[in-house]
């Protein structure tokens, strides 16, 4: 028995040493240490030994088994080491990972979605309206009469008779207020059209987002609060806001809203024309004439409205210097967003 064990040990060790690769070694391990291996067989014989030989055989088995395990482990390590040192089998991990195709939504879509998400959190509902509008909704109901210089700011594409391509998203205010009861808070994204010759900062088609809130005693202070919160969330915590009086026929009082330049933080740079401020919003309190046109009692309700150009915000946010890039659809542009 003892002799048998010693022979087994010698053969096993020599086979371990002769193993040429990990697979050989694994075969040797199974042959000797496996569940039905040689060692197991020998151990099965112990019970048939006379009692006097049992302790010695047991001790020897207990020595051989760890010895073989250690030899196998050593050999294993030598393989791993050899593999590491062999440049032919070494993987070049500096090679690039596999390429996955990924598409991108348009930066205008992303910007609209960012803007709407902020207002949705404040309880505003997203509402849309048609791009082909009536002259009444686009102008008259918004206190922009025909042949009035206030129309100069709204050059418009006409289709025929009373129909036109909306020159702003404000007609959706008219549509919504006519059909829905106050209080209400809506946000309106969409395409608008103006006959501006195309250059780096003008486009005859662009996007706006319009907002409107109507409630009892909604005030300019609330408009300031909502727009500040919006700008803070869109541009960052350290943004500053500035309201300048302005004129819009559909709001009274009216304001233009500037944010501290997001490029230079107000120090003055080429983007803000050294002013430190960027104009990004038009806003104001809904003109009682507009309330009258849509049948809302302006003694009971007040409201504020605001509007912004999506391209302008996207250009500032992403540092894009030419509005035409949005509509050229060059994939080297689209893939950056």
């Amino acid at each position: 028995m003892i002799e048998q064990l010693n022979n087994l040990k010698e053969t096993a060790i020599s086979q371990i040493k002769e193993a040429k690769n990990a697979d050989d070694l694994e075969a040797v391990r199974i042959k000797y240490l496996g569940r039905k291996g040689e060692m197991a067989k020998v151990m099965g014989l112990i019970s048939s030994l006379p009692d006097s030989e049992k302790p010695a055989a047991g001790r020897l088995i207990n020595q051989v088994k760890p010895l073989l395990e250690e030899e196998i482990s050593k050999k294993q390590k030598s393989f791993t080491l050899a593999e590491k040192q062999n440049p032919q089998s070494k993987k070049d991990l500096t090679m690039p990972g596999h390429r996955f195709e990924s598409g991108h939504t348009h930066p205008i879509t992303q910007t609209i979605s960012d803007i709407c998400a902020i207002f949705r959190h404040m309880g505003f509902a997203v509402v849309e309206g048609p791009e082909i509008e009536t002259e009444h909704n686009n102008f008259e109901a918004l206190n922009i009469p025909l042949n009035h210089p206030s129309r100069d700011a709204f050059d418009t594409f006409y289709i025929k008779n009373e129909f036109l391509l909306r020159s702003h998203t404000s007609p959706v205010q008219v549509r919504y207020m006519t059909k829905h009861k106050s209080p209400l808070a809506i946000i309106v994204p969409g395409k608008v059209f103006r006959p501006d010759a195309v250059d780096a900062s003008h486009s005859f088609m662009f996007h706006q987002v319009e907002g409107l809130m109507v409630d009892e005693r909604v005030s300019l202070a609330h408009l300031r609060g909502v727009l500040f919160e919006f700008c803070r969330q869109l541009f960052g915590e350290d943004i500053k806001l500035r309201f300048r009086p302005h004129f819009f026929p559909f709001t009274e009082p009216s304001a233009e809203v500037d944010v501290s330049c997001i490029i230079c933080k107000g120090a003055g740079c080429s983007v803000c024309s050294q002013k430190g401020w960027l104009e990004i919003l038009g806003a104001g309190m809904v003109n009682p004439k507009v309330f009258k046109a849509v049948g809302i009692d302006s003694e009971k309700y007040t409201g504020f409205a605001f509007g912004m150009g999506v391209e302008r915000i996207a250009m500032l946010k992403y540092g894009i210097n030419d509005i035409r890039l949005f509509f050229e659809n060059d994939i080297r542009f689209l893939e950056q967003f």
Partner: peptide, 13 residues
């Protein structure tokens, strides 16, 4: 003029 948040108006889409 101060900046004040209005009461929330939940408008259903």
């Amino acid at each position: 003029i101060p900046m004040v948040m209005p009461r929330a108006i939940v408008t259903e889409e």
